[in-house]
């Protein structure tokens, strides 16, 4: 039996009927076509599905859509502005922090959340801030550089 939930995604409110067992990741990707959020495992291990839910990062593959009822969700699609890429996204492009790009939306969301809470993170805090996000391509070096460049 589908349930109706209401939530805010990237400043837009949604009312949507969902199966009780569908995850937030699948709802975003397959019901709302917000495919910027990726899935690299579906078991909470890779961080590719990272979104911000009520101010904290979550692995959206581990959250049921119905658990997100009433929540405020930010996804990668909400980051760019009318002017284009956000400064953080620009930094990822500029520093070469993106290779295959499959981890990138999740890492950028983790980095955004980190910088929102702590505009001046140390290297260790940056490492910790993206520790839930696996990247097999970059060796993280340029990801650290991109985030470091956004310290205020």
């Amino acid at each position: 039996m589908k349930k109706i939930i209401s939530l805010t995604i990237n400043d837009q409110s949604h009312e949507i009927a969902v199966e009780p067992n569908i995850t937030l990741a699948d709802m975003l990707r397959y019901e709302l076509a917000l495919t910027g959020t990726k899935k690299g495992c579906d078991t909470g291990d890779c961080g590719a599905c990272t979104v911000i839910m009520d101010g904290d990062v979550v692995n959206s593959c581990l959250v049921l859509a119905i658990q997100a009822n009433g929540s405020v969700i930010e996804t990668i699609e909400g980051l760019s502005t009318d002017e284009g890429l956000s400064p953080l996204q620009e930094a990822f492009v500029e520093k070469g922090a993106i290779q295959c790009g499959f981890c990138s939306p999740g890492i950028i969301m983790s980095a955004k959340n980190l910088l929102d809470k702590n505009p001046n993170p140390t290297e260790d805090q940056i490492r910790e801030g993206v520790s839930g996000n696996l990247c097999r391509c970059t060796g993280y070096q340029k990801i650290f550089e991109a985030i470091e460049s956004q310290r205020s």
Binding site: I76, I98, C100
Partner: peptide, 9 residues
């Protein structure tokens, strides 16, 4: 390719 990868597009 990376601007589109940074935005999820």
């Amino acid at each position: 390719d990376t601007p589109d990868k940074a935005t999820g597009q």
